[in-house]
Design a protein around this nucleic acid. Structure first.
Lengths: 117, 117
DNA sequence: CCTATCCGTAAGTATACGCTTACCGTTCGT
DNA sequence: ACGAACGGTAAGCGTATACTTACGGATAGG
């Protein structure tokens, strides 16, 4: 999270927007189709798509009256790279902590990782 | 975003929490130290740390009156894996779209990826 | 031209959320 | 025992946000 004020990270902080991205990961979809798959109104989907588009995570094309949305791979790749950078940095920091803790008493709570799924 | 209702993804949707994680990626820190580095009050930091802890992204140990927080590598790794899975899936979907579009007329808007940093 | 479909956007609303100050329990040093 | 430092939590507050309905422009078919 180097760019911790990043629009894209803000964007995926919302569960409905993550759901939209999950739908689009499978295939491109029109707004109405997305709305059919989600428990929110179509205008809500439009608003979310606008956020995602502004964050560079999705792109659109028009087909008649329809707007077809798809993921923007570059945007998703950027997220991935940022998380990777962060992860590498965290590993370095973690090793440092482990070394420090080899030489002193500690009182540790909540050591167990909490699984996300 | 397979687990799109995931607490951890919700958690990092907030810029202050991302900032906290960035600080902790460098080294473990006490609450007060974190508060010194961020433009929010110490109780605000506590509240954010609680969210991060419940999401499995940080862990704590006590040292006297101090609570020292650090990143939880397992939690961060889980995010990374989920994003990786999502990315692979998106790539598959993207290839499918590219194939579909080779055989039909399209009208594309906003094709350019928007850089995050 | 008329009608239907699609979808962006405006406006409104409820509420979640991120912030603050205040309080109080815990720990430690004197 | 007392005071200082630390930090969790309660309570309050302002506002951003995610939702809704309504409106209207664009497109396409008859």
């Amino acid at each position: 999270m180097e760019a911790y004020e990043s629009e894209a990270w803000d964007a995926i902080g919302d569960p409905t927007r993550r759901a939209i991205m999950t739908c689009l990961a499978g295939q491109e979809l029109a707004v109405g189709e997305l709305a059919d798959e989600l428990p929110v109104s179509r205008p809500a989907v439009s608003q979310h798509l606008k956020v995602l588009k502004n964050a560079g995570l999705v792109a659109e094309r028009t087909a008649g009256t329809r707007r077809i949305y798809r993921l923007n791979p570059a945007g998703v790749a950027a997220l991935r790279e940022q998380l990777e950078t962060f992860w590498n940095r965290a590993l370095t920091g973690y090793r440092k902590v482990a070394e420090d803790r080899n030489s002193r008493t500690r009182n540790t709570t909540d050591e167990q990782p909490k699984e996300e799924e």
